[in-house]
Nucleic acid binder design. Structure first.
Lengths: 355, 355
DNA sequence: GATGCTCGTGGAATCGATTACATCGACGTG
DNA sequence: CACGTCGATGTAATCGATTCCACGAGCATC
């Protein structure tokens, strides 16, 4: 591979001049510029980013550590992150933690070793020493979706409280009174918060959230299945299960089917995180939709702000309820709503009258 | 951030000795080793991968350019690639092309500039000059899933011919005679091959594949919707639509629903690429499953073989048919198959007798 | 015409590692 | 005792860029 020296030799100038041309430094003669560019062309020269990074101490790269690539919520997040980063002149290296703290640490270490300019994390746990050290050491960092309390790092996330209240109102309106939740890991903020929001919303209707109706999941499908089976085995099973993420909802759906039962007739189902597939499941699943793309973009902007010396603010955006049929039919309505009009998410229809 | 010099100073040795300890070179005294390790510990030293790469001309990094991160097939592929790479001591940088040749080139260029050790690509098109140059220049490269004909690069992929034959047998057995396909872009191998395999399989039953029954899609959901609408507008619409990937199948499902029609009664549906969500759609979708994880692992092994100077072989693995209910009920059968037993993919049932 | 400025350029230091080569002491052997 | 070998270590070159500094030419100012 041709180096800057080869270009310099070919163009008959020094490496300094080549470098100036490449970084369009003002004081280069037009003649030298054309000669260098010609040499670059004939040699097919491309600057070595590794060498450049060593010298400038900048990689123009962001690290993104997500909790689970197989979760469509995080892939969508990753996509919007990469898009915005590209627009701002950065590349992104994604690390997938598979909800495993050890893997998360592996990726954080790897990214720090590569001297990425900044780190975007959706933490799988309450904060490993490594992560805390990195934050304290001043690595530009931003938490997205989940965060670690007590750490001085901006957080970009969705607030689901309002949407959870809407959900509970919807469920209550359909006559449901025994509501259960499949929680995420207590080590994650989203794992805890969603339970709290749910409990609070129930309280507004004078409803309790008994311990038996709080199932401990880990954001993976299997745990949703397991917890739902537990619920169904209770002497008085819940009428509704609210899964704290989309994969556990999928597991719950499996569990219900495996017993030959039906959603929503035998057990209603709702999920946190809306994904496009929820329109096509049997039945379509009522979910709380986060503004995922906007979250990813805001997180990148906050991180790049920090990297480039600006403050970098926390952002909280509202989530919203998307009602479908998995909790019961609010209306008989027209023969079939038209999914082609709004394939990804349907508008909330909480105000439709019940038959 | 502490550098190797700081460690050397702290330990009272030269940088050479520190480097030797870190790369466990044999000739270092036990005493020096412990002193260095202690210094590393107290300083929290981590080697700078950028500097190391510059010197050794190795990044221990693979580039993976996939066609679309939002497609679950590719996320699963990416996950298995990262897993195997990690096991072999490599990291992976993923570039998402969103089925756009220009974005694909952007990522390839970026990865080459970073001097990745090898490149794994699922090409979005027939081969840009950049990609061809890279292959010719001797960059270790492996194609996965899709490939570019005429380029000297190992290919790791699934052969769907057998499964497509099984699918056509299944459809024919159900009485379907007018079969249509939503093809992928003609610039991709998979876009062409799947049509050819389908046509061939139809031929075995004396069936034609008229041009009107070949819809041109682009592997994205929208195109599946559009093409399916076109099929439904034909004076003699097909009885079955076979989508060449999972996203176009989703679009097709949308289109059918939007007309108030039903799958499989009004139009049967099958897809190439099986994904876990197909178990949960309404109805569950009959699909051709690729051994995705195995493909990813084999691709990494082939690439690392090339990087480390071994030959690096092409691999072709068989795909297989997974029958569900979207083409009609092959058997009245027991009330409901148990999805909990095999949540991701159900076993092939091509050998069931037709009723 | 001397002075000072700007502009274009090249030489050389530098970033943080790896590694070839030189050095030096200890030890075994003839 | 002289010599060769080997193990442990340090010095310095090197990878490919960026950038500080010096230098010379051209030009304006006084």
């Amino acid at each position: 591979m041709a180096s800057i020296k080869d270009v310099a030799a070919e163009a008959g100038v020094s490496v300094a001049t080549v470098s100036r041309v490449l970084n369009d430094h003002p004081s280069v003669s037009a003649e030298a510029r054309t000669r260098v560019l010609a040499a670059v062309e004939t040699l097919g020269y491309r600057p070595n980013a590794v060498a450049r990074s060593l010298r400038t101490d900048q990689t123009h790269t962001l690290g993104l550590v997500i909790s689970d690539v197989l979760n469509p919520y995080f892939t969508e997040l990753a996509r919007s992150v990469e898009e915005e980063a590209r627009a701002l002149g950065y590349s992104v290296i994604i690390g997938n933690a598979d909800e495993r703290p050890d893997l998360q640490d592996h990726h954080v270490r790897n990214l720090l070793d590569r001297r990425i300019d900044g780190l975007l994390v959706s933490p799988t746990d309450g904060g490993s020493p490594l992560m805390l050290d990195a934050a304290r050491a001043g690595t530009p960092m931003v938490f997205v979706d989940r965060w670690i309390p007590g750490v001085e790092v901006p957080v970009v996330r969705a607030d689901g409280r309002g949407a959870v209240r809407d959900l509970v109102a919807h469920l209550h309106g359909l006559g449901h009174r025994r509501l259960a939740i499949i929680a995420g890991p207590a080590a994650t903020t989203t794992g805890r918060e969603r339970v709290e929001a749910f409990r609070e919303a129930l309280g507004a209707y004078g409803l309790e959230l008994p311990d038996a109706y709080i199932g401990q999941g880990d954001f993976q499908a299997d745990s949703g299945r397991r917890v739902t089976e537990g619920f169904l085995d209770l002497p008085e099973p819940p009428e509704v299960v609210f899964a704290a993420d989309n994969l556990m909802a999928l597991g719950a759906l499996d569990a219900v089917r495996a017993r030959g039962l039906r959603v929503p007739d035998d057990l209603a189902l709702a999920a946190f995180d809306d994904i496009r597939w929820f329109v096509h499941t049997d039945p379509p699943i009522t979910a709380i939709a986060q503004p995922t793309g906007e979250l990813g973009r805001a997180a990148v902007r906050a991180l790049v702000d920090r990297i480039e010396g600006r403050p970098g603010e926390s952002v909280t955006l509202p989530a919203r309820l998307v009602v479908r049929r998995s909790c019961g039919e609010p209306v008989p309505a027209s023969p079939e709503p038209d999914p082609a009009q709004a394939p990804a998410v349907q508008p909330p229809v909480t105000n439709r009258s019940h038959s």
